[in-house]
Computed example of a mutant assay.
Amino acid sequence: MPVYDYKCADHGLFYELAAMEDSSKPMACPTCATLCARVIMLAPEFLDMKKENRFAHQRNETAVHAPVLSTPEYRAEQKARREHKHGKGCGCGDKPIRKSNLLFTAEGNKMFPSMRPWMISH
């Protein structure tokens, strides 16, 4: 038989053994004997989880009830969101990557034509 969590309004949480078919039934508080509803507590490993994983679980839970279907309209909306909206020189990383001027000699030494000779790479 599993242990279920119950919460009394006056005395707080308590734990009781109950059969699985009785899991939804209220249980009497051991202190005041009032019937108390079952509560579902958060799993401790969920609290210790990395923030990124916790957000992924939260996103998956919301997607269970309202899944996003990949339709042409949805894809067009996502593409519009990805479009660059900043001005020139915003520094967001949308610039093309320059080709390096690094060359290697036959001996394996590095050579930087038209670059500053005092800059030595590691």
Rank of each mutant, 00 (worst) to 15 (best):
K7R: 15
C8E: 03
C8Y: 05
D10F: 00
H11C: 05
H11D: 06
G12S: 14
G12A: 10
G12K: 14
F14P: 07
Y15Q: 15
E16P: 02
E16K: 13
L17Y: 11
L17T: 14
A18E: 02
A19Q: 13
M20L: 13
M20S: 12
D22L: 08
P26A: 10
A28T: 04
A28V: 06
A28D: 12
C29H: 11
P30C: 04
P30H: 04
T31L: 13
T31S: 09
T31K: 08
C32N: 03
C32Y: 07
A33E: 11
A33G: 00
T34G: 04
L35F: 14
L35M: 15
A37P: 10
R38E: 09
V39F: 00
V39I: 11
V39E: 01
V39W: 01
I40V: 03
M41Y: 02
L42T: 13
L42Y: 04
A43N: 08
A43C: 07
E45N: 13
F46W: 00
F46D: 14
L47T: 01
D48C: 04
M49S: 05
K50F: 00
E52W: 03
E52D: 09
R54E: 00
F55Y: 00
F55V: 12
A56N: 11
Q58G: 06
E61D: 15
T62S: 13
T62W: 08
A63W: 05
A63G: 03
V64L: 10
H65D: 09
H65L: 09
A66D: 12
A66R: 15
P67H: 07
L69I: 03
L69F: 11
S70I: 07
S70N: 01
P72C: 10
P72D: 11
P72I: 08
Y74W: 01
A76F: 04
A76L: 08
A76N: 09
Q78G: 04
R81I: 06
